[in-house]
Design a protein around this nucleic acid. Structure first.
Lengths: 243, 243
DNA sequence: ACCTGAACACCGTTCAAGT
DNA sequence: ACCTGAACACCGTTCAAGT
């Protein structure tokens, strides 16, 4: 869970700076306490409510005080994402016979954990995670894919692909949550979307009209599972063709 | 290109309101002029530079003036995305023999068009596009997939999946651009990332260390093409198994 | 009907000043 | 070394007032 014994991670030039205190004197404020407070705000009120001011307020202080423990809001979000990735379970040992099931299970865990933290996935997306928790996930995923018989080359590409897909779906999950919509409201919206597709002019959009039902069918889990299945079957096919 | 003859699109509750003028008196300001100015800002300085104030400044007025033609910044971005999707070419007629190539070509066009507009893909991601241009793309994609022999059910899921993947990659493309990084800086970053992976403790991350090269291999185009290939092979496999 | 200046209620971050 | 109040340079949006 701690990353202090890892070599220094490379930073993308655009991202903000690193260096904050290693061990704050733990008077009242600390990096851990700030991350805790920030996570609570994201969980309750979503990413848009996450503000240096709201975090500070939750800790009974002012926004300027946070900068002794956190370099920037950017870095705070980075810490938040690392913390949440640490909640994802990568349990069982790689089993060559069950690699597809194991990949699906891990992806589902990932999605579920992020779903339990509001729309944090939105902040996570596009970030190359280099913390200990993210590396643990990558390590496990690579082990599973290699055990499953994928070549090193395919594995190197597949890890990113699976993570990209999973986080992209988690991102979309979060959008509905962020709007504060209930399940009923979302279902109602999908219903309106289906009616809209069905009501389009048939001469210009014959296929959209014909597939209005299919385009809006399936709940989020079904659609996510479908995508995972497609990815895994595709990786199998690409692997076969390769060898 | 115009969507005025379409039925009213359903709106997700969270999104902001719709109704602005249909035909502004075209004195100096107009919705089209505002979208033009906004696109210019995104192209030159990125999405973070897009501000009601910067747009207004580019038009020689104040931010309050924009609200006569645009309901909110949210809606301005929606218009922006619709405009850009309109630049994507969906050329040739669906050819059953070449459906895979056609899907790849369209996805590449999509990615290229968004790449030419800074990091706008970030704003587009997760949005369910309901404008005429987006529908034209969906119509074409559905036609190609059906022509390729996919079932209606698989097609309904596949359209989303392909769009999700393409926009997710476009999103990531944009992140590097938004930081103002040159190609050299990005290459240098990938190099550092590879060294970082290779330098990790072998006992905890044997697979990450072993695949340091593969994890960071291939340029963005190669990786994108790989994902497309996996998706298409997977769709073929899922279709076969279904029938 | 359109446009505007001014204001409201916010942001992230800095910095001199405190302890 | 840590914490703070106040300030800086911004946001999106509203609204009364103009034409």
């Amino acid at each position: 869970v701690s990353s202090e014994d890892l070599p220094a991670a490379p930073r993308f030039p655009a991202r903000a700076g690193a260096g904050t205190r290693r061990k704050p004197r733990q008077r009242t404020l600390s990096q851990a306490a700030i991350v805790d407070a920030a996570l609570g705000i994201v969980d309750h009120d979503g990413l848009d409510a996450l503000t240096m001011r709201t975090v500070a307020h939750a800790l009974g202080t002012g926004p300027a005080s946070l900068y002794a423990h956190v370099a920037s809001k950017e870095q705070l979000i980075e810490l938040l994402v690392e913390r949440v990735i640490g909640e994802v379970e990568f349990g069982c040992a790689p089993d060559p016979e069950r690699w597809a099931e194991q990949v699906k299970e891990a992806a589902n865990n990932m999605r579920r954990v992020f779903a339990s933290h509001g729309d944090l996935a939105r902040a996570s997306f596009g970030r190359i995670p280099v913390g200990a928790n993210a590396l643990r996930g990558a390590e496990w995923m690579i082990a599973v894919l290699r055990a499953g018989g994928l070549s090193d080359q395919v594995t190197g590409l597949a890890v990113d692909l699976i993570a990209l897909y999973t986080m992209a779906v988690a991102y979309e999950d979060g959008l509905a949550v962020a709007g504060g919509n209930t399940v009923e409201e979302i279902v109602a919206f999908i219903g309106r979307l289906r009616k809209y597709y069905a009501s389009l002019p048939t001469d210009r959009f014959p296929n959209v009209v014909a597939l209005a039902g299919e385009l809006t069918a399936g709940d989020e889990n079904t659609r996510f599972e479908f995508g995972l299945e497609v990815l895994i079957r595709g990786l199998e096919a690409v692997s076969r063709q390769e060898g």
